[in-house]
């Protein structure tokens, strides 16, 4: 029946900032991020883990936030699309998506950016096959994926060049 379960207090970290919120156990992390915390960058495309539009990173791993309960965020470190750019400006993956026209309607873009960032950090120099395999959980219906793959490859190149530069500067 509709006798409301007591809301649970959760303390977590979102994009480097400590955050507290109250949520019902049934609220997904996606609902909490969007409706409670106002982080509407992550999108609901299917609400059952098959499109990747709601992808966020929890403790360094990409997950579908529609398949995580808000209460599970207790003590976790969460990164969302809103945390990819910083005061210095856009992250290379964001720049490469823009320069490479790797988005059309843009609804899948936040999920792709989050997954791509996770991939670039975990597997620099990934092959096209690896990119396509690891991001197959992110659906795009507009682009045919070509420009998305190329944007990720270009961002990878730029990131490895900047790493090389910083090595030479040491």
């Amino acid at each position: 029946m509709t006798t409301a379960t007591k809301k649970i207090h959760v303390t977590t970290t979102v994009n480097g900032e400590s955050v507290e919120f109250l949520c019902e156990p049934r609220n997904s992390l996606l609902e909490v991020l969007r409706d409670t915390l106002g982080l509407t960058g992550c999108k609901e495309g299917c609400n059952n883990g098959n499109c990747g539009a709601c992808t966020v990173i929890i403790n360094k791993r990409p997950v579908n936030s529609c398949l995580v309960l808000g209460v599970e965020a207790e003590g976790a470190e969460i990164e969302t699309v809103e945390g990819i750019a910083d005061a210095r400006g856009l992250h290379p993956i964001q720049d490469c998506f823009l320069e490479g026209a790797a988005l059309q309607c843009g609804i899948c873009t936040p999920g792709f950016l989050v997954s791509a960032k996770a991939l670039l950090e975990k597997k620099p120099g990934a092959s096209e096959e690896t990119i396509r395999f690891d991001l197959s959980g992110n659906l795009c219906r507009c682009t045919g994926y070509d420009k998305i793959v190329r944007a990720i490859q270009e961002a990878d190149k730029q990131l490895s060049a900047s790493t090389d530069d910083s090595k030479t500067n040491d």
């Binding site: 098959n50 990747g52 990409p62 997950v63 996770a118 197959s136």
Partner: peptide, 9 residues
């Protein structure tokens, strides 16, 4: 099983 996001969980 699923995509990377599923395999993470």
């Amino acid at each position: 099983i699923g995509g990377w996001q599923i395999q993470s969980r």
